[in-house]
Structure formats: C-alpha cells, structure tokens
C-alpha cells in the first residue's frame, strides 16, 4: 500500500472501523513507514489525551431531581390506572362491559323471538292458502266430472251411437305475475314568441287545456302541462287460464 492510501484510511484504522484484510495491510505499512507511523501515533495519543481529560460527572442534586420526577410520574400513573378502573365500573356497580354484554344478549333474544313469531304467522297463512287451493281443485274436478257425465247422458239418449271416452284435461289455475307498469311522464313544450306581447296563460284547469290544444307546430310557446297525462297507477292483475 502507498502512503497516500494509508493516510486516507488511517483514522478509520485507529477507530477500528476497517476490514480485516485492509487492517493487516495498513499495519504492515505502518511498521515499515516512519512518517505514517508517527502520524498514527499522533492520532492515538490525541485520542488518549481527550479520553483522559474530558470525562466528568454530574452533581448529586441532578439525581435528586430526576428521582423526584420518576416518583411523581409513577404516582400520577397509578392514579390514572385507578381512575380508569373506576370508570370501567358503571351504573349500580355493574361493570360497563358486563352491562353491554347483557344488552347485546337481550337484543339478540328479542330478535330471535320476533323471527319465531314471523315464522308462525307465515305457516298459518300458508295453511290457509293451501286450503283455498284444495277447495278450488275440488270444484274443478267436479266440473270436469260434470262434463263427462253430460257426455254419458247424451250417449244414453242416443243408444246406437258408439261410446267414446274423452279425456278432458284438468284445468289448473295459474297466477301470473304482471309487472307494474312504470309511470310515464310526457312533457309538452310550448313556445312563445318573445317579440309578441302575450299575456301569461292561466295554467289551471280548462284554460290551460284549451291553450295546449290551440298550439300549432312552429309556434313559440313556453309552458309545460302535465295534468293531462295522468300516470297509470292501478292495474288489476289478470288471471289467465292455461290449456
């Protein structure tokens, strides 16, 4: 190693902040080179002198102050902990957490009971609906029988005519869901010529209708009337029969 290279790393070498291989190279150079060696010695002695002269200790009054602060902080911390504990115990000495848990359980139970009630009402409704369905089916079967018996009666009347068994399909009722027709709003724009002095039209009642009817294409009018376009609100569901 050259002297310049060694001088660059001399401080790191004296501070023990250098790799092992480089350390060996620098050490061997210092053993042979007098000027680098003396510089290294200077660094070491300076560091030694500083270590010997600079350290010092604080006074005892500092210790007292710091320990006093420690004690007071501990006292405050314990007071805070006890306050927190007291806060946790809520009304009538019941801990808040337990109270919250009880409330939650109560809410869950009431919800469960409500659900049970709804289920029982639904069952009753279903039973009623089933009964209705059965009665309807019975009526239909009676009607079909009636048709068949009618045919047999006619055969009896015309004895010579060959008898034929006619299969009459059972008519079933089926409820078809009809989608609700959405309201449709139709607007009409009336243009009024700004140049012409026109009195403001009365928009209420028949006058307004008359005005709207009197509108012609190409005329400038400015008014809308929605009263004529009543939305379809009630549509009765229709029952169609499937063959």
């Amino acid at each position: 190693m050259k002297c310049i290279q060694v001088r660059e790393k001399l401080e790191a070498f004296s501070d023990d902040e250098i790799g092992f291989s480089e350390r060996e190279n620098i050490a061997s150079h210092l053993a042979n080179c007098e000027s680098c060696g003396s510089e290294f010695e200077g660094l070491k002695s300076l560091s030694k002198a500083m270590k010997n002269t600079l350290p010092m200790s604080a006074s005892a009054s500092l210790d007292a102050k710091v320990f006093e602060a420690f004690e007071s902080h501990n006292a405050v911390a314990t007071a805070v902990v006890t306050e927190e504990k007291q806060e946790k115990i809520g009304w009538f000495g019941i801990p808040k957490l337990a109270f919250a848990a009880a409330l939650l359980l109560l809410a869950m139970f009431s919800g469960f009971a409500f659900q049970l009630g709804r289920m029982s009402v639904g069952n009753v409704q279903e039973n009623l609906a089933e009964k209705d369905r059965k009665s309807v089916e019975e009526n239909k079967s009676k009607s079909s029988e009636f048709v068949v018996t009618n045919k047999t009666d006619s055969e009896e009347k015309e004895k010579k005519v060959e008898t034929k068994i006619v299969e009459v399909p059972v008519i079933k009722e089926r409820i078809i869901k009809i989608p609700v027709v959405q309201e449709k709003i139709v607007t009409r724009t009336i243009y009024v010529d700004r140049n012409q002095k026109v009195n403001k039209p009365n928009l209420s009642g028949k006058d307004n209708l008359a005005l709207n009817n009197s509108v012609k294409d190409g005329e400038f009018l400015t008014q809308t009337n929605l009263k004529d376009f009543q939305p379809v609100t009630e549509i009765k569901p229709k029952i169609s029969k499937e063959k």
Binding site: P55, M56, S57, A58, L62, D63, V66, F70
Partner: peptide, 17 residues
C-alpha cells in the same frame, strides 16, 4: 425504581458529559 436507578446511573455521566 431499582431498575430505573440502574439505567440512570449507568448513563447519566455520559449524557451529562
């Protein structure tokens, strides 16, 4: 307190210095 005093006495001179 004992643990704190051990920490304090081991570091106070260095910090103060």
């Amino acid at each position: 307190k004992e643990a704190f005093s051990e920490i304090y006495f081991s570091l106070k001179d260095s910090i103060f210095g």
